[in-house]
Design a protein around this nucleic acid. Structure first.
Length: 471
RNA sequence: GGCGCGGUAGCCAAGUGGUAAGGCAGAGGUCUGCAAAACCUUUAUUCACCGGUUCGAAUCCGGUCCGCGCCUCCA
């Protein structure tokens, strides 16, 4: 089966056929850099990372763009409160964002354009929209997109404008618009903006939110591209507005495949500061969980299902990864032995990879893909137990793990277990001597000693082995 | 009110017409001086509930209950 995705536009599973064979052009809505991103944000970024890795695994050359929204109401407000210039204020959160991406092993996109770096492109696009009568200058000198000029409006979100709860959050300045549903392309400067302003044909001001994604995607990916993703909350109005702007300005289809990932919940509740269940990545790391473990948790549920984050889930992740790590250690040890392969592991590996791939190709069914991995782990463990697998054929298993990990990014196939310090190894040896002398009381005592220092001792046919206690 | 998603073992989670993947946790066993790891067996006669369609339904249809999301700037 070729690669398939659930396309929000059609609400159906569709085969992925890129505009240009072998290439995938991907736009992913990035963070607004007014604060540290929270784990809900990272669920989306992990999903997008999984998507780009899946595309690459399936043979596509990926060009991904992720925008950084560094000018909007929240960044301006934050900068004012912090008493910092806007760029200095957002800089710290941009840096933090990239550090967090590293923590979660998220592969970098090809482009990270910032809104403040693309103002001319946005202004040009707004000019085109005005020329084409899709936008107008309001009495307040702001520029608005006219939804009435774009009959297809609502195609993505499938919202009927007549049935929308109009007026719930109308702001005081909205009288300037022809229709309440029209949205701002350019916001005229006002006092609250302070020093933040750019010159434009319509006077000083700043861009609206939606226009940046239209301008940046066009700049790096062209007027039409393959994939656009984001959280479901961006489906409307943000993505709907992007389509309207881009298609009205360019006269061609904007995006072929829209993928949206569902929300992350925390302990069954929506994450919110007032509930006390609001976590940034840094909060969770501070509680002792590694980026690798958190990544595993965030990968655990299909992207279109709500994911309920819990610390119980983190514990599960730690245990599951321990099984993988122990497996890697066994493989490494087996690889050092003389070659043995009495069961023909190659066929088993081929089957495992096919199963893994089939899962991914089915709208990134990672649960199915992981089942393929764990079934392989069990079968290979069985072979290792029976002494049927060693040497090069064992190394071939590790090689497959390496391949699968180009998608998963959590297996750490080549990361050797933490080398034990000399005194730990000395204790292990002392215990081994005690065992040989049948001094089991001393042997057990040493095991406890090691445990207290965070090291687990395991006896194998090749001698004792120490491993670091997880967490 | 409109649009939409979901309820599968103690927990997490696949499966969307052919007789319940996988992970964690638990129990028993093999191995071990003892452990750990690994392996084996076991843990849902059943998929929120009630009807219906069908040779056959967790999967399709109707209804009920419960949880959640979106409906103008929150991934």
């Amino acid at each position: 089966m070729p690669l398939h995705f659930h396309n929000t536009l059609s609400r159906k599973l569709e085969e992925f056929i890129p505009l240009e064979p072998g290439k995938a052009r991907l736009y992913t809505c990035g963070p607004t850099v007014y604060n540290f991103a929270h784990i809900g944000n990272f669920r989306a970024y992990i999903f997008e990372d999984l998507l780009r890795r899946t595309l690459a695994y399936c043979g596509f050359k990926v060009t991904q763009v992720m925008n950084l929204t560094d000018v909007d109401d929240k960044t301006i407000r934050g900068a004012r409160q912090a008493g910092l210039p806007l760029d200095q204020f957002t800089r710290q959160f941009k840096d933090a964002f990239f550090a967090d991406l590293k923590t979660l092993r998220i592969e970098p996109a090809e482009f990270y354009p910032a809104a403040t770096g693309c103002i001319p492109e946005m202004i040009r696009m707004i000019e085109v929209l005005i020329e084409k009568k899709h936008a107008y200058v309001g009495d307040d000198k702001s520029v608005y997109f006219s939804i009435a000029s774009f009959p297809r409006y609502g195609q993505l979100a499938r919202l009927n404008r007549d049935e929308m709860r109009v007026g719930v959050r109308i702001k005081h300045d909205e009288y300037a618009k022809e229709s309440v549903a029209d949205f701002a392309l350019w916001k005229a400067w006002d006092e609250a903006d302070g020093e933040v302003k750019w010159d434009s044909p319509w006077g000083p001001g700043r861009p609206g939110w939606h226009i940046e994604c239209s301008a940046m995607s066009m700049k790096h990916l062209g007027p039409t591209f393959d994939l656009h993703t984001g959280g479901v909350d961006n489906l409307f109005p943000h993505h709907e507005d992007e389509i309207a702007q881009s298609e009205a300005a360019n006269g061609v289809k904007f995006v072929n495949y829209w993928l949206h990932c569902a929300h992350l919940m925390v302990e069954g509740q929506k994450m919110s500061k007032s509930m006390g269940n609001f976590f940034t990545l840094r909060d969770v790391v501070a509680k002792g969980w590694t980026g690798r473990e958190i990544r595993w948790v965030l990968l655990g549920t299909h992207y279109r299902q709500q994911l309920d984050f819990s610390f119980q889930g983190c514990h599960n992740a730690r245990a599951a990864l321990q099984r993988v790590d122990d497996f890697k250690t066994r493989l490494q040890e087996a690889a050092a032995l003389p070659d043995a392969d009495t069961t023909g592991v190659a066929a088993r590996l081929t089957a495992a990879e096919a199963e893994f791939r089939a899962g991914l190709e089915d709208d990134i069914n990672l649960s199915a893909a992981l089942a393929a991995l764990f079934n392989l782990v069990r079968d290979v463990n069985r072979m290792l137990d029976a002494g049927e697998l060693a040497g090069k054929p064992a190394a071939a298993v590790a090689e497959l793990l390496r391949t699968l990990d180009t998608v998963l990014g959590v297996l750490d196939v080549d990361q050797a277990g933490a080398d034990a310090p000399a005194d730990i190894l000395a204790l292990a040896q002392e215990r081994q001597d005690a065992r040989k002398a049948k001094n089991f009381a001393r042997a057990d005592e040493i095991r406890k000693l090691l445990a207290a220092r965070g090291w687990i001792l395991e006896d194998t046919p090749q001698g004792p082995r120490v491993k670091r206690q997880a967490g």
